[in-house]
Design a binder for these strands. Sequence first.
RNA 1: GCCCCCAUAGCCCAAUCGGAAGAGGCAGCUGAUUUAAAAUCAGCACAGUCUGGGUUCGAAUCCCAGUGGGGGCACCA
Length: 844
Amino acid sequence: MSNASDSAATPAAPSGQHEQQHDQYDVAAIEARWLPYWEQEGTFVAAEDDERERKYVLDMFPYPSGDLHMGHAEAFAIGDVPARYARLRGYNVLHPIGWDSFGLPAENAAIKNDAHPAEWTYRNIDTQASSFKRYAISADWTRRLHTSDEAYYRWTQWLFLQFHQRGLAYRKDSPVNWCPKDQTVLANEQVVDGACERCGTEVTKKSLNQWYFAITEYADRLLDDMDQLSGRWPERVLAMQRNWIGRSTGASVRYTIEPAADGADVEPVEVFTTRPDTLYGVTFMVVAADAELAEQLVTDQHRGELEAYREQLGSVSDIERQSAERERTGVFLGRHAIHPLTGERLPVWASDYVLADYGTGAVMGVPAHDQRDLEFARAMGLDVRVVVDTGEDDPVETGVATAGEGAAINSPAWEGRDKAAAIERAVEVLAEQHVGEATVNYRLRDWLLSRQRFWGAPIPIVHCETCGEVPVPEDQLPVQLPDDLRGEQLSPKGRSPLAAAESWVRTSCPSCGGAAERDTDTMDTFVDSSWYFLRFLSPHDDSQVFDVEAAKRWMPVDQYVGGVEHAILHLLYARFFTKVIHDLGLIDFDEPFSALMNQGQVLNGGRAMSKSLGNGVDLGEQLDAYGVDAVRLTMVFASPPEDDVDWADVSPSGSAKFLARAWRLAQDVSSAVGVDPADGVAGLRATTHRTVAEVEQLVEAQKFNVIIARLMELVNAIRKEIDAGAGGADPAVREATEITAQILSLVSPYTAEDMWAVLGREPSVANSSWPVVEETLLVDDTVTAVVQVKGKLRDKLAVPADISAEDLEAKALALPKIQKYVDEGGGVRKVIVREPKLVNVVTG
RNA sequence: GCCCCCAUAGCCCAAUCGGAAGAGGCAGCUGAUUUAAAAUCAGCACAGUCUGGGUUCGAAUCCCAGUGGGGGCACCA
């Protein structure tokens, strides 16, 4: 069972010997034969002037972290199936490849090795590119791109300027997530459980002036347009995006604030609530302790207490603060708000359970019907007033708030109404009194895009003392990265390394010509990957961001393939970019990916492969041991594409065995090219055409693993026919074997190509035409009908396939066994007939 | 706490519309071939579909409740 002992690991035969070795399946020789051929012939180049119907099949492009690994092997084997299938079905297929080549690892490697990030990056890209070529992805290499190329990031900067011009890229001061280890800010999406997604360091808050994309302006469209993706994207990805956007509808309510003893006027405070129906249950108001609002509201007598409270909070980490069991804390601000409907005086408190950056940073306290408010009220001795009768016990006694449905009580303006009707009426009342209105709030925040790191696209903005923030004119793009920084000069210092390149920073203002400074931050690398699928349309065009005419022809992407780890970040950002680019008038669609497939992970022994577990499997070793085709076949066959593949559960040696078995069939075909399959044995022909018909459905349904199972059956059937049936000269055997090569080419291109050549056909099998199913071969003359009595199988019956319901029923009822059961059951009550396959006799 | 997905043989997994529970593979066993082994070939066995209800002539499939596993969001008002 050890890999090393597997016979598929036979070293390559010297070239030129394969003619003599045709009875031996020699993986290395077959790979060596076809790889250069495809490259020379440009077999997979997508033509612009080809007017056949088009398909754009895209794998999420890789980050160049070292060589390819098992995860790449799975993803790209799976992504190649729809691409190759479309090609066989006669589509003009675009299946490009490139690299997402900006990012932190390159920079860290550069610091460590006293080098420039570009050196590490492009070396890794070269390594991966040659591995990809060997892996025989049917990619169009002429469109290869790297996001770290000037020719690419120039247009990333151009897009930034378009966003900026429309007010969608802006700067603001805000507390932001800060990773102390990477010394850079992070987007909300990059903070997982309070820690940096990349390095795991606990994230702190820092108040900084940063660049943002106004993705929240697109929140509704991002949410609502998911309807058109339903059924074509995995449901869980859509669910994750819905969660992330977190739209909640409710009302904003304005509370006037009672002037303090010192007489100073205070602005009204607006709060957001999803439960305006509980308005009569409000007994207090709480503002976020860390919000400016708290400072504005606190009276002089209580200012000291607020400051002490804030100081105390500073020592509490985010993770601790979010723990559910924490006691409610807070301070009274010495101030009262006026209830907009009752005129009651409501004490205003500050607490850390209210978030400063959601809604308005203030909430109305409804302790009877909100658990958090109830806990706070109990801790502070505040009133609890029940205004919804849910039929549950009094929250005051149980300590459990009743958040469910029920009739409104103690609510004069909507007494007795159920939740929905009460909410509706409450919003009306608020509007009539001019104290509130229906409002929508989102969990989604604007996308923080600036990074204080080197290896990214510089933000094309110049800061001028007289003109302020000035965009770099488009004809001066790209703003190139300075090339004289390397090694230690790139180490994180809490501000961008670009700031150290003084001659780079010093520039003149594009507007007034005076002395000015460049913005020293670079863009989040997710910006780069938010539009690369468009750049693939015209990667060498230096006159425009992408060819808008080509976009009409190719976009949107018909099939996007990638890991579920990008469910929120990349996919949400790419959708956002597409909508903005749509609004810029460059494209006429507003969703980039019509269909999405998530492939699973590759595990080993039930766990993700990792260095610390020591369970890593080296892709190169697997390829050397079993061959590219066997590894690809194993990946596809192991499970449905979206499921994880556990390398400990699968058998690449079994795959290699199957490939050899399939390949040998081609050796045994002795009929000439072009013989009429109609002259061949009928049984095998029926199996063949049934397989083709089924494979068509299986590709559409993305059940790629089952394709392999069907192919194995076909191979078994051909073997049987050759050895114990009509023999290798039968035309049906040739037809079946040719089709085997075609189906196999979806997954194991080398073996398939070689079979195709051995069969005497012109390469490439990848561009051959998909077999036409002969429908007449799919229908049997006779079928087996099952006969049930009360749903239990009691007998079987061979009948003509076109039997009528009446005849089938008569035949079934005439069966002696059935008569026996019918008699025992007390006679026929009803007969269900589904001709020609089933009869169910109901007795009694 | 809220939401999404999943559960079929020792293991990975099939099963169009609700119509015979089993296609394929792995591991296992038997045999042929072989001096032997490998490779190859032929064959065998193993579950009644997580549990409990319901709908139906008929449920792996639909509905309800639960158990177990995976995932997302979460002091978001």
